[in-house]
Amino acid sequence: MRLLIIEDEKRLAENIAQALREAGFAVDHAADGITGAHMAVQDIFDAIILDLMLPGKSGKRVLTELRQTKSRTPVLVLTALEGKETIVDLLNSGADDYLAKPFDLGELLARVKALIRRAKGVSSTIIQVADMEIDTVRQTVKRRGQEIDLSPMEYRILQYLSYRPRAIVSKQELLEHLYDFEWEHHSNVIEAHISNLRRKLNLQGTEPLIETLRHRGYRLSEEASS
């Protein structure tokens, strides 16, 4: 999952970014409203964390403009402003959630995860695909009750695919959503991770879960157990 932080306070953005990266997200940062708005409209983020008081362009304007482009990316607003009106106003402008500063980093993580789950149409923290079970809180994967040890990147790819079962997910999409701009990446990293993932998931007597469609992408199939 890839997140965008639009926050002018550098130290705060650094802390949030680090916490999110440690939680397995790819994170990009914009330090002002104009850059933030530019980045937000590219449909590559799974959630946006938006500060209200931004130089260049206010957080509220960024939000309004984002919603005008019909973007459905969930937005969590960080605010240091008091008052019910601002909150009501924000939610009406298209914010999905808000947190008042100074906030709890753990709460921020939980809310961001919940926003992404909801946006992907999943309400539970445990995703079930065929005979595989993904616990998004503990970040563990089980197949037929047997725990499978995955690297963080492998887990992220699997989780991303599991949010879109049966859909074909292109390599480009995976790259966009799983790596941020700071990451040195090559297009073949995905292939390597998928290959490892397939190998680890392939237990004795089971069908392969991940299909590769040449030049098109990958698909997580649900009928694997049959």
């Binding site: 306070e9 680090q18 500063k101």
Partner: peptide
């Protein structure tokens, strides 16, 4: 002033919380 203090507080708090996360 409230905004400024809250932002500074948010930084301090998040810096410390980040350490405790793992």
């Amino acid at each position: 002033a409230a905004h400024e203090l809250k932002t500074d507080l948010a930084i301090v708090k998040s810096s410390l919380q980040l350490l405790t996360m793992k």
